[in-house]
Design a binder for these strands. Structure first.
Lengths: 113, 113
DNA sequence: TGCATGTATCGACATTTGTCGATACATTGA
DNA sequence: TCAATGTATCGACAAATGTCGATACATGCA
C-alpha cells in the first residue's frame, strides 16, 4: 500500500519556511502537508469534523454537507489521513474521523512561529 | 490578464479552518492560498527570497539554487505573486521579489489563532 | 542604433488530481 | 445464514499542473 509508506512523520516535518533556505527534501515534505490543505472539499471536511460534537464525525454524515459522492468523500478523507491531519477509527460499521490538532499546528508553525 | 483577476484580497481571505464549517466560497479562497504553498519549488523560492539580503531577490539568482529553468522559475514566481505571497518590482532589467509577511501570517492564522 | 541580457509568454507534453459509477469488502442485525 | 448498510477500491475520464525549449518583449549599454 502506498498509503502507509506516504504517511507523514509528524515530528520531523516542519522547518520554518521563512527562516532560511529549505533543502529539497524539507520542501518536499512540507509541500505534502500543504497539498492536503489545497483543496476546498478537504478544507470543508476538516472544518466539519472539527465542528462535529465531540470532535468526531462519521464519514457518512459528511457526504451531504460537502455535496460529493461517497467515493469522493472517502478518497479525500484518506488523503487527509495520509497527511496526518485526521485520524480514522473504525467503530463497527462506521468510521469516526477526528482532527489531529498537533499536525495542523505543525503546519501553521512552519509559516512562522 | 488572468493574473490581476486572480490576485487575492489579503484582507478577506482567511476564516479559521477549525472554528466552524467553512462555506464553499470560503474554502475555495483558502484553498487558493494553500495551493500556492503546495509545491516544493515554490516553498524553496519563498525561503530563498526571505533569506536574501534585505529580503529581496532577483529572480535570476533563484534559478540556480532551485535547479529549474528560467521559464519554470518565472512561472512559479508568478503563481506566488498571484497568491499574494510575494511582490515583484521591476527595477531596470531585473525583477526584485519580496515576501509579503502579512499574507503568510494570514494563511498561518487560518490554521488556528 | 544595435546588441546583450533579464524576464514573460507560448506551445507542447507527461503526470497528477478530482470526480464519478460500479463493485468489492466488512460488519451488524434479522 | 442472509440481507442491509457503511466504507474502500477499481477503472475511467476530464481538467489542472509542472516542466521544458523556443521565442517574443523590454531595458540598459556600447
Amino acid at each position: 500500500m502506498k498509503r502507509s509508506v506516504a504517511t507523514i512523520d509528524v515530528e520531523a516535518c516542519c522547518p520554518q519556511v521563512l527562516a532560511g533556505p529549505l533543502s529539497e527534501p524539507e520542501a518536499e515534505l512540507l509541500a505534502l502537508g500543504f497539498k492536503a490543505l489545497a483543496d476546498p472539499v478537504r478544507l470543508r471536511l476538516l472544518s466539519l469534523i472539527a465542528d462535529a460534537p465531540e470532535g468526531t464525525a462519521c464519514s457518512c454524515d459528511l457526504e451531504g454537507p460537502v455535496g460529493k459522492t461517497q467515493s469522493t468523500v472517502s478518497h479525500h478523507l484518506s488523503l487527509l489521513a495520509d497527511a496526518g491531519l485526521i485520524t480514522k477509527e473504525k467503530l463497527g460499521r462506521w468510521v469516526n474521523c477526528a482532527v489531529v490538532p498537533e499536525r495542523v499546528a505543525a503546519l501553521r508553525d512552519a509559516l512562522g512561529g
